[in-house]
């Protein structure tokens, strides 16, 4: 029954679509990344310029600043989402009154489009209109203006991302927790392990594949975040993440070559980060049992 040709035949539609819509555009961006292509320049065609785009990129303070901001955003948002998601998933494994209702309400943000999430949060935090600046000013005498204070804009973006994506992490963690067999946990308890030891030596190793997949997906999403942050702060200070910087270079400035080179380096950083995380979490380090 196991015929490799049948396997390849069944896989071929997916492979063709992947090649056409995934790999071919990547090759095109790779090609454009080594060219100068600005429709408003004197020569509006593609002009090969070797490594000039990358030479410009490594000295571009705006780009380097955007990478730092994106890293801060990703670390704080994903860290909070994983911790919160795990706590909520643990809570949802137990029975309590109103559990079904809580699960529905908790999952609602996942169904909202990112651009609508940005719009909702903009309405919440817009100075002179939104309830958040109003109550912060009234109760704590705190001036809250995301257009004026970069740190406030960054933290608001982090909180918005946590609000939007924690349900996703909760659902994946819940699936992972439900798949853990009861016997090892019960054995550990019989052997006298406390709650932390059960979590560290039994639950966490079983959750490792789920955790890895979830963090991968969230890292890739966080690094390419554009729409909701753009809607929230319009690319203002504190929210000029890499995705927004690429958008600014490619669309208003129409500097396609330079924009492609930034996209390639962002992809490179994402892949390296995910790979390092894979090595750290997957148990392939020497001395660890797979």
């Amino acid at each position: 029954m196991r015929n490799p040709r049948t396997g390849w035949l069944l896989l071929s539609p997916t492979l063709i679509i992947l090649l056409l819509f995934g790999f071919a555009p990547f090759l095109y961006v790779l090609f454009v990344g080594f060219n100068q292509w600005n429709v408003f320049s004197a020569d509006d065609g593609l002009v090969f310029n070797g490594l000039d785009n990358f030479r410009r990129l490594v000295f571009d303070d705006d780009f380097l600043h955007s990478v730092g901001l994106t890293a801060r955003f990703a670390i704080f948002a994903i860290g909070s989402e994983v911790v919160l998601g795990f706590v909520l998933a643990q809570m949802l494994t137990r029975n309590f009154p109103g559990k079904s209702l809580f699960r529905i309400i908790h999952t609602l943000p996942l169904m909202v489009a990112p651009i609508a999430v940005g719009a909702i949060w903009r309405l919440l935090v817009i100075p002179g209109f939104g309830p958040v600046p109003f109550f912060l000013d009234r109760w704590f005498d705190l001036k809250y203006q995301i257009g004026s204070y970069p740190d406030q804009a960054l933290w608001t973006s982090v909180i918005m991302d946590v609000w939007h994506w924690t349900p996703f992490v909760t659902l994946t963690m819940l699936a992972g927790l439900s798949a853990i067999p009861k016997e090892p946990v019960e054995q550990a308890r019989v052997d006298g392990a406390n709650r932390f030891q059960v979590f560290w030596y039994v639950t966490l190793p079983f959750l490792r594949p789920v955790l890895l997949t979830t963090v991968f997906i969230r890292i890739m999403d966080a690094i390419r975040t554009v729409d909701e942050v753009w809607m929230l702060a319009g690319g203002g200070p504190g929210t000029r993440f890499t995705g927004i910087y690429i958008w600014r270079v490619v669309f208003p400035r129409t500097d396609y070559g330079y924009g492609s080179s930034i996209s390639l380096i962002t992809l490179y950083l994402t892949i390296v980060l995910c790979w390092l995380l894979f090595i750290a979490i997957s148990g392939r380090r020497k001395g660890e049992v797979e």
Partner: peptide, 16 residues
Amino acid sequence: FIGVVILIGIHLLWLR
């Protein structure tokens, strides 16, 4: 893969 990652990394650091 590690070889390619190192190649790109060294070139970027060299340019800088």
